[in-house]
């Protein structure tokens, strides 16, 4: 079947088998490999992207269902070389380690903040309930999303985790928490 979709700003028209999963169409058909796949039951959320602005798990959508839509993947989230505030926040607050869940996690967070620009910690945790991370224990992801929310509201990001200044001399650095 013929499908036409705009992916990260570019229109593509292709012939696909009806059974082709959206995620495979993007990855194998269009070479948009930024969106990874982590499960086959729509639990892990690694393949989350935005279809017409809303988060979906692209492993549980057929490419034919996405005919006529506009899709944003992690590769299309930045504006040129300017990262989206959520992308920035994930780096500033160490919201990722191996990074495999990160594209889905970031796009789920973008979706969350589009509905709830000022979430509580608890709302962030529930808003990300469809995305599994095995590395971070989620704490820094939550922090990243709260910081991005603050920045997107115009209140500036939360204080970052990383140090812009050099550490104190190692010999004198005491225990910190």
């Amino acid at each position: 079947m013929r499908v036409r979709m705009k992916v990260d700003g570019v229109v593509y028209e292709d012939e696909v088998e009806p059974r082709t999963l959206l995620t495979h169409h993007l990855r194998d058909g269009l070479g948009r490999v930024g969106t990874p796949i982590g499960c086959d039951t729509s639990n892990c959320g690694s393949c989350t992207l935005l279809v017409d602005g809303e988060s979906v798990k692209s492993c549980s959508v057929l490419a034919v269902q996405a005919d006529g839509t506009e899709i944003t993947t992690i590769q299309g989230l930045a504006e040129g070389s300017t990262w989206h505030p959520v992308q920035k926040a994930f780096q500033e607050h160490h919201g990722l380690q191996c990074g495999y869940c990160t594209p889905g996690m970031i796009l789920a967070a973008v979706d969350l903040l589009s509905h709830n620009p000022d979430p509580t910690e608890d709302e962030v945790r529930h808003g990300l309930e469809g995305n599994l991370c095995r590395c971070t224990g989620y704490q820094n992801i939550v922090k990243s999303v709260l910081s991005a929310a603050s920045e997107m509201r115009g209140d500036g990001p939360l204080p970052g985790s990383f140090q812009d200044a050099p550490a104190e001399s190692h010999e004198t650095a005491g225990a910190s928490s």
Binding site: I74, Q91, L96, G99, T102, P103, I106, Q163, E168, S169
Partner: peptide, 24 residues
């Protein structure tokens, strides 16, 4: 002051922008 300093990760740029090279 490099040791003990919370440096931003060099790994993150590719990971938060989807420019990764997973085996698949």
């Amino acid at each position: 002051g490099e040791l003990g300093r919370g440096r931003r990760r060099k790994e993150d740029a590719k990971l938060v922008t989807g420019q990764t090279n997973w085996t698949d």
